[in-house]
Amino acid sequence: MTRARTALAACGIVVGLWGLWLLLGNLSADQLIRLPLWLGGAVVVDDFFLVPLTIGAGWLLTRRLTGHTRAIVRTMLLYVGITTLIATPLLLRQGKGINPTVLPRDYLRDWLVLEATIVLAGVLALVVQRLRRADGSAGSRLRTARRF
């Protein structure tokens, strides 16, 4: 195991240094100074904005919920969050494509429809779950029925 680990790590360092070499060879000094700022920015956005936001929003919006309801609402919120994250550049650049075939859709409408669909699916899942719980015997009856 130790030998495999050493070999893996050595390969990784060589490959990583090759990438660094490519950067040094292809970017100007000015660009090389700014790139780390963007790399740092990516970490800050992830670790100090997106992840805390997910944890915070998830906690705030689901703290009074329990069990399956909580899981369904959290999943729904995560789907809304991730699709919104990816839709953001499209929404920002709507109508600013370099030609009419780039970004040709009405992304605001599409985004609203997508989020509405996710919320609707979540609500449906909640309703189905409530119905099952309200009629506790339904599940067992189904299961019995299937046996015959």
Partner: peptide, 17 residues
Amino acid sequence: YALAWIIVGALLVHLAV
């Protein structure tokens, strides 16, 4: 392109760890 190699390198180190 260069970042891709750096990612694979760092991933190999991470796997080793």
